[in-house]
Design a protein around this nucleic acid. Structure first.
Lengths: 213, 213, 213, 213
DNA sequence: GTATAAACGAGACGGTACGTCAGGTCTTTCT
DNA sequence: AGAAAGACCTGACGTACCGTCTCGTTTATAC
């Protein structure tokens, strides 16, 4: 439990710069960034340990050593906290390789995705999508704050393949992406089969054959 | 609200045959099948109206006009009730056409699936898979009681295509199925794009091109 | 802490008669009288220990080993519980002596009242009247369930004195009672002077002189 | 609502005299007397509107347009504020008449007291005494800052009656005062009867008969 | 028939968590 | 240094459900 705090919050952030434009600024105590991080840490830990549904605000507050009201002041819903916690821990990622062969780039990307899906992060993603079924706010946050950038990056790769003539000219990138990613998420969420590198390869071969010029 | 009951349960099950082997049989009142149906109806309605997570056993009991204990006596968990309710309403389905062309059979099937996914049943399926992320029991029930038969049927079609030479001999039916169904479930669950007949066609064309001999 | 309970409530009240008229009876489990008593005991203890204002429903529930909802199901307010608790512990009381002399009867009664007011019961009464300033429900309960019977009894004594000629014929019993009891409650509540037997005697002498024929 | 302030406290005390001797003086901003009055006004209004128990420091601060800390800096407890607020509004009072007849002086005084008790001030007094049951500080403040002077004045009248021979020589002023005031406070606090001029007269007659020489 | 036994609607029960509110303290910025 | 604003931890509020447990009644065999 890395984020347990002693009790009293004597953090005193020691004058973090806050390069503020010289326009008054509202009075009042600032929100403590240490507290913020403690809450996110607690949320992430609980998400991995017991899952989205079993988490409680009370539990997050207790583990973070924080009052419930402090959480409610900062986030409107459990989904919000969890999304922030997930993103804070999973941002640095998504870089596509560029080997010259689009098929090879994508194979490596899907293999890497499969590996992530088998890690705790994968369970978290599944939990977030699951939670999104009853919480449109969470679903939207997941799409716009996690998925969008990754899809954009992947679409660029598909377009690169089309331009280089490696992929057929009439390929629809949206459909192509779904054909590649959809099956991985499908197995992640439904659990009817395992996510192995072999599966990644077979999937990529099948879809890329369909996409090839 | 079709299942609302007057209050008192005056069902008197009218001697349902139950062709049982003539070996003693325990005494005591039998479980009323009308009650059973009322609970399933109430559960299905609530599932569509407010979703799996927001449902409560208490709410189901109230709407069904039934005591909570009656529900706990019959099902061990919310997941169980909901799965039974879903299956009772969605069994008659899954028949594949047989047009002579496997690609055409599959196109029709995926189009039909897309249509289902856009109906309330689609939301229910999404809700069930979503609930399955925090309830392995529900996930397992969904796989074995809903999905398995459908995948088996679809696999038969793929194999038929392989045998007829329409599809390449080394095609892995499991991967093929995921490539076809995965993207549809992906869009259903993540909601980043709409499920249209056009999408179904583009998807089937892409995957079947990859599968073609 | 006399009322602490082991945990599970296995009381089973053993079929108390309930000589009920034969008119249906509401369904459902009956409210456990043991639980009832535990709550009252806890409330009375807390009232004496920390006072009405500092008491919390949560605290009562915890000490009684009872869920909060159980309390809210039975009483609408803290005042109600406390009043019931007070009455359950303080009912057997109020008997006036009958020495032949009304003045002597009253002296003994006021002396006895003064003694009560110096005991924990006195503090409880003060707390109840104090609480009644912000809770009309509590005030009304105190008047009708505690005070009324005592005043009625005392009024009877005054009337007896009038009839016997010991007291003047035009004495208003209500005013007489207030003149006797008011000062005692005044000191109890305001605390500007002590409540001693000597004070009781002086008070009774003064008022009875005013009342004498 | 006379004391509501726009929000920002732009009072700028306009050089209140503060005839201070020019001897050093502590540094820093002076406590704004306007702020002080705003808080007392807010407290008094709330006391009359919702009573002592329902009042909150937060509510007083909000209505006064003042920070909570400003209140905590000046008063140690809710009781303190309320007492100050009450006294600020109710000081000018207590003058006894002098008609030559002590009985008549007292009758007028009790009649006047009864009238006050029927006004909002009466409810406030009841509230203060009620609050004093759980807050000895408040009780003590009420006795020393409100009651003491009034009792002193009344005692003087009693003594005057003794000296003039109108009252019996062995009358104990403390008991006499309680016999006169006690019943009024009793009805005020318990509410079992109304406080009318007629009641005042009957009470004074009864007690003064007991006190008469 | 008459036990015996289970199912049933109702609802009490000890709990846990909800989201809100106020308490009293502390920090920040402005005056 | 005082004041307004507001973050912060604490803890109680009253409500909603949880899953279990009586209640008294209604059906069913089994003796």
């Amino acid at each position: 439990m890395s984020s347990t705090r002693a009790g009293k919050n004597n953090s005193q952030p020691t004058a973090e710069a806050c390069g503020d434009s010289r326009e008054s600024r509202a009075p009042g105590r600032k929100r403590c960034p240490v507290t913020h991080q403690c809450i996110l840490d607690a949320a992430r830990e609980l998400l991995e340990e017991i899952g989205f549904a079993a988490m409680t605000i009370e539990g997050i507050a207790a583990r973070a050593g924080v009052g419930k009201a402090t959480i409610y002041r900062r986030w409107p819903s459990k989904a919000g906290i969890v999304m922030d916690a997930f993103l804070a821990a999973n941002c640095p990622d998504a870089r596509f390789p560029d080997t010259g062969s689009v098929r090879e780039d994508i194979r490596r990307q899907i293999r890497s995705l499969v590996k992530v899906m088998n890690s705790p992060s994968g369970r978290t993603i599944a939990t977030l999508i699951g939670g999104g079924q009853m919480d449109e706010e969470l679903a939207e946050a997941f799409r716009s704050r996690y998925l969008a950038a990754r899809r954009e990056e992947a679409k660029r790769v598909i377009r690169r393949g089309v331009e280089s003539g490696e992929l057929r000219a009439d390929a629809d990138p949206e459909v192509a992406l779904d054909a590649l990613y959809g099956p991985v998420y499908y197995r992640l969420l439904v659990g009817h089969g395992s996510l192995t590198p072999k599966y990644a390869d077979a999937l990529v071969d099948l879809v890329m054959d369909g996409l090839a010029a």
